[in-house]
């Protein structure tokens, strides 16, 4: 439990650093993905239970299922969030392709037409 929390905090720091500091458009998108994945790790670890079983009902584990299974709700939330993350990443990458076509560079310092 503590290990996953520390890992997710480290990943979040890496992600935020990557989004804020890096100048390359693709690297910014990667940083965003790392940051979101750290949140997914946190969500999954919230539902974790020491020595728990998978939250699927079968004939073998009908008795005492609720007391032993891990919480399935965070897993459903993470799955939904992964789908959202996927579409945002795809959209961001396609916009990065278009930006490269217009500016011939992926450097954000060159994207300064709109400012003020």
């Amino acid at each position: 439990m503590l290990e996953t929390l520390i890992t997710s905090a480290l990943l979040a720091v890496v992600g935020i650093y990557c989004v804020v500091v890096k100048k390359n458009l693709i690297k910014k998108v990667i940083g965003l993905a790392i940051f979101t994945n750290s949140i997914h790790l946190l969500l999954i670890s919230i539902g974790f239970r020491e020595g728990g079983i998978a939250p699927i009902i079968t004939q073998a584990n009908l008795v005492g299922f609720a007391a032993r299974a891990v919480d399935p709700l965070p897993q459903a939330l993470v799955l939904t969030s992964i789908v959202i993350q996927l579409s945002v990443t795809a959209l961001a990458l396609s916009i990065a392709i278009l930006a490269f076509r217009h500016l011939n560079t992926l450097n954000t310092d060159k994207m300064n037409k709109l400012s003020g």
Partner: peptide, 16 residues
């Protein structure tokens, strides 16, 4: 639906 959407994304990205 997921199959269509993901395949479409991959195809479009390869075509770029």
């Amino acid at each position: 639906m997921v199959m269509c959407a993901l395949t479409l994304i991959v195809f479009l990205m390869i075509k770029e």
